[in-house]
């Protein structure tokens, strides 16, 4: 494992911890899109179908368990926890996320590396992850006061994607036959979706002002 990959995984882990900290400690999910969280839960559930069949490493299995467990518990918290539920910006979080599922699934049926159940589901998870942040970005645009934890959460998620691209570039030059167009293109699309957010995140940081996205 190279440094970019490890840093990417750690940023991803940090993003989840920041979100859990906000939800569990402050008992608030204000500014967090349940739609995006539900999509992430579906992403991990369809990607990690191999968790009990193919052993890669202890690290790999543990991280998979963490991402599965955290994504489903976040959804549970927002939907079912008495206090957290109250802080959910339901009226603002209106993105029709179910409409993303079918196109991603059809695309996975059409464009994949191998036409098997596991491989199609894995490809579906890549396509879905690429667009899963959209409801969250729309909600951020509508949020007047983006709190620090929410801003940091989205920043860490974007950083994780950026680091994965560096990891792919590194692997391309160091490993033979390392060419994977499907994850690369969907990963690139996913990272580009954060570009606008990053711009305003750094602007607010540079000017020491509260983060706000133009509507």
């Amino acid at each position: 494992m190279n440094i970019f990959r490890l840093a990417g995984d750690m940023t991803h882990l940090a993003s989840v911890l920041v979100l859990l900290l906000k939800i569990h400690t402050i008992k608030s999910c204000a500014g967090i899109s349940l739609k995006t969280q539900e999509l992430f839960a579906i992403v991990f559930a369809s990607r990690y179908l191999d968790i009990f069949t193919d052993f890669i490493s202890l690290y790999n299995t543990l991280m998979k368990l963490i991402f599965l467990g955290s994504s489903f518990s976040i959804v549970w918290y927002i939907r079912r926890h008495k206090l957290v539920r109250r802080s959910y910006d339901k009226d603002q979080d209106t993105f029709r996320h179910y409409f993303l599922l079918l196109p991603c699934f059809i695309l996975a049926l059409l464009i994949n590396e191998k036409f098997t159940f596991k491989e199609v589901m894995w490809t579906f998870s890549l396509y879905l992850e690429a667009v899963a942040i959209l409801p969250q970005l729309v909600l951020l645009q509508r949020t007047k006061n983006i709190d620090n934890l929410t801003g940091q959460y989205v920043f860490l998620l974007g950083a994780y994607r950026g680091l994965y691209i560096l990891n792919w570039i590194y692997r391309y030059f160091t490993e033979p036959h390392y060419v994977h167009w499907i994850p690369w293109i969907s990963g690139l699309v996913q990272t580009l979706l954060y570009a606008d957010f990053f711009y305003y995140y750094f602007e607010s940081w540079k000017n020491n002002k509260k983060l706000q996205l133009p509507a």
Binding site: R5, D54, I56, W122, N167, Y178
Partner: peptide
């Protein structure tokens, strides 16, 4: 193998 490369990522 090529396949293994891909699936060791999260």
């Amino acid at each position: 193998s090529n396949d293994m490369n891909l699936k060791d990522e999260l």
